[in-house]
Simulated scan of single mutants.
Amino acid sequence: MTLFNLEGKTAIVTGGTHGLGMAIATGLAEAGAELIITDIFEEKLDEAMKYYKEKGFKATPYLFDVTNEDDAKANVDTMLKKHGKIDILVNNAGIIMRQMAVDMEVSDFRKVIDVDLVGPFIMSKLIAKDMIARKSGKIINMCSMMSELGRDNVSAYAAAKGGLKMLTKNLATEWARHNIQVNGIGPGYFATTQTEPIRVDGHPFNEFIINRTPEGRWGNPEDLAGTAIFLASDASKFVNGQVIYVDGGILATIGKPSNE
């Protein structure tokens, strides 16, 4: 369908070397987009490039830290010279530190905020300058259910993702007049390598998530692809400042869903 066709588009996916970022990048590439993949680990980039090459996708790696403004600017300048334009930016790179707030070092709190909130601001600011000049662009921020809900052990992450939700709304407000749509995706609990240790049968958290999610399962990374394609394509050209939660229905309900 032409509304969802990304042929001729170039998409940056920060941290698109594994997990949810790789699933989103795969979806965008399957819809026709050329990929730019960033990471701070060269080994991860090399492995990701092998995967994208095997899939037949056109993908270019860039090794830099999105929280370093000078480094990010130099790489974005190189991207624009090499690729001509950036149509889609997916701010996916992020970290989480699970620790009770009373025990968390301020330096660790700041690091999470820096990666999960400041990094997307830096990348959005740099990429938006070209998008504004061309009067066209799509920015997708990877928010979270923690943009809406609190939970123990993730105070820094929740603060960053809550901030990212509001950054999404504010950037959409500023740049909508330039035909730039800034939206977010809020994943629920997904089956990734990070969650593998707690997804085993009998683990209390595994049982909690399955019972708490109306669909009765963890999300699969590929479940995010459709939402990403929608927000990156012309199908969402009048959707702005929104966060779409892909969570199997968790935020739609309270308590344990009925088994009937």
Rank of each mutant, 00 (worst) to 15 (best):
D114T: 13
K165N: 05
E54I: 00
T26C: 01
D108S: 13
G186M: 07
A11Y: 03
E260A: 12
T67S: 15
G163I: 10
V102T: 12
N211S: 14
R177K: 14
I95V: 14
D87C: 01
H18C: 00
F205H: 06
M104C: 10
D77V: 07
P120A: 07
G162K: 04
V200Q: 15
K111E: 13
E47N: 10
I12E: 03
I24Y: 06
M142I: 15
D46K: 14
G84E: 03
G19T: 01
I229R: 04
K111L: 15
M79S: 08
N179I: 02
D71H: 11
G186P: 00
K9Q: 10
R151C: 06
D116K: 04
M79P: 08
A133M: 03
I113D: 03
D114S: 13
I40T: 12
A160F: 08
E42P: 13
M145A: 02
I254L: 11
E7Y: 10
I198A: 09
I40E: 07
M166Y: 05
D234M: 03
G94H: 01
P257K: 10
G188K: 13
L89D: 06
S147H: 03
A74Q: 14
S144D: 11
N92V: 03
V102Y: 11
G241F: 09
L80H: 05
M79W: 05
D116W: 02
D234R: 01
T38F: 07
G219I: 02
T60D: 07
P61D: 06
G21Y: 01
G249V: 14
S107Q: 15
K9V: 02
I209C: 04
V246F: 09
D201Y: 04
A232P: 09
N68G: 12
G255W: 00
H203G: 05
M22A: 13
M166T: 09
L63Q: 06
E54L: 00
D70H: 11
S107T: 15
G8Q: 01
G137V: 02
D152I: 14
L224H: 05
I36V: 14
G16T: 05
H83V: 00
L126V: 09
G150S: 13
E47C: 02
N92D: 09
E43H: 12
G32F: 13
M142S: 02
I24R: 01
A25Y: 01
P257A: 14
V106N: 12
K44G: 06
P221C: 02
F208C: 02
I86M: 04
K73C: 15
R110A: 14
D71M: 11
G216M: 03
D223N: 10
G8V: 03
I122W: 15
N211L: 00
A101V: 15
E43R: 10
I40A: 05
E148D: 07
A160N: 07
L171T: 03
A228F: 11
D108E: 15
K9H: 03
D234A: 07
Q99I: 11
S236E: 05
G241D: 06
L3W: 05
T213G: 08
V182I: 10
L149C: 11
A228R: 07
T38N: 10
I229Y: 04
L117C: 04
S236V: 11
F190A: 02
Y157N: 00
K138T: 01
Y52K: 06
M100Q: 12
D46R: 12
